Simulated scan of single mutants.
Amino acid sequence: MHDHASHYDSNCIFCRIAKGEIPSRKVYEDDEVFAFHDINPAAPVHFLMIPKKHIASMAHLSEADAPLLGRMMALAPKLALEQGCNPYPAGGYRVVVNTGVEGGQEVHHLHLHVMGGARPWLKG
């Protein structure tokens, strides 16, 4: 049904960003992962982390994707600090993955939102 062998979808904006076909403000890149600033930030620090291969959503993950997602989760704290999030425990960040329409997913290429930074207007 969903073929992971087709790692690139030319109709997918995030596939195109990862390939450099659409410009972005890059945060990080390696063989498997691409991270870039959110175009409409919801926090002082707000970037997205995506797998370079096209995986539509969390719902499409298989056991074979666990090492990739584990790497992404382990990389998130390092990138968050580099991008200006304050250190734990007083500082911090949120890692959010929206899945499907009811989950608020707008681009159907798996992406982790990393959001943080000082937000003095928030109350808890």
Rank of each mutant, 00 (worst) to 15 (best):
V114F: 05
V96N: 09
D30A: 01
D9S: 12
P120F: 10
P23A: 08
F47Q: 03
L79G: 05
H2N: 13
V95Q: 03
A80H: 06
V33N: 05
E82L: 13
A90E: 07
S57A: 11
P87E: 12
G117F: 13
L61I: 04
C85Q: 01
M115D: 10
A18N: 12
H7Q: 12
G84K: 10
A43L: 10
R71T: 09
H37M: 14
L112G: 01
V96W: 06
L122R: 14
V45L: 00
R71S: 12
I50S: 05
G103I: 12
Y28G: 11
P67Q: 15
L81R: 10
A5K: 14
V45K: 00
Y28R: 02
F36T: 09
H109R: 06
I55F: 02
R25C: 03
D65P: 01
A56F: 06
H108G: 12
N11M: 13
L122Q: 12
A76H: 04
I22L: 02
L69S: 07
A76K: 04
Y28F: 14
H4E: 01
P44E: 01
G117Y: 05
S57K: 08
G100D: 05
H37G: 08
P67R: 15
A56S: 11
G103C: 08
D65Q: 01
C15G: 00
G100T: 13
L112D: 02
D38H: 00
S10T: 04
A59L: 14
M115F: 12
F47L: 05
A59P: 03
Y28A: 07
G124D: 11
H109K: 06
G92Y: 01
V107F: 03
H54N: 11
M115G: 08
H108D: 14
T99F: 09
F36K: 11
H46K: 04
F36H: 04
A5D: 12
L79E: 02
C15P: 00
P89Y: 04
V107C: 03
T99L: 12
M58Q: 15
H2W: 11
L61M: 10
L110W: 08
M72S: 09
A64R: 13
P87I: 13
P51R: 15
